[in-house]
Amino acid sequence: MADLSDIRSETQDAPNTPDAQAPAPAPGMVVVWRAIFVGILLLFVVLLAWRLWDTNRSEHRASGMAPPFTFTTFEGETISLDDLQGQGVVVNFWASWCDPCRDEAALLEQAWRREKDNGIVFIGLDYLDQEPAAKAYLAEFGITYPNGPDLRSEAARRYGIKGVPETFFINSAGEIAQTVIGPIVNEAQMESYLAEIRP
C-alpha cells in the first residue's frame, strides 16, 4: 500500500503528449491493412452465408447419390463408403437407447450373414450413444457386421435422418435405392430391398 502515492503522482505528472512516440504509418499502408482486415471479415461472413444456405438445402433426407462418410468401428477399423464402390451397401442408423431398433436387430444380422458373400455390405452407425451401452447392445444381438459410432452425428446430418432407426439401401453405383424410416418389419420387406441393390 505504500507505493500508492508514488503511482498517483506518476500518473499525474506523466506528460500528455499525444502520439509523441508513435509515428503515424504511411497512409498507403493503412489502406492496405484496412482492406485486408475488412476482406477477412467479409470472407468469414460469406462463408457463414454459404454454409447457412447449404444447411437449409440439405435439410431433407438424402436421396440420389449416397453422401460419402468415413467412420471407425468399435474394433478400430476405418471404413469409408467410397471404398465399397461396386458392392451393395446397407447403412443402418441405430442406438442402444432406441427400442424400435431392437425389433430389427436380429433381422439385420441374419440378412448380413446370408448376404455377405453376395456382395452386400452391412454397416451400422451408432447415433448419439454411449460406447459401453452400444457394445452391450451389439453383444446382446450377436451383431457381427461393422458397427461404429457416428461421431458428431456427421453421417446422420448428411443423410438427414430424423430419428433412429433409419436404413439406407445403396446400390453398387453409389445411389440410394431405398430408404426405410423405422424398423424393417419382416424378412419379405428386407428381401425386396436387398434385391434392388444386389450387384
Partner: peptide, 19 residues
Amino acid sequence: GVLESVHSFARSDVGPFFL
C-alpha cells in the same frame, strides 16, 4: 444449424436475419 452440436435448437428461418 451451421455448426453441429448437441445443443442446437430446431432449425427455423432466423438464419438470414442474423446474417
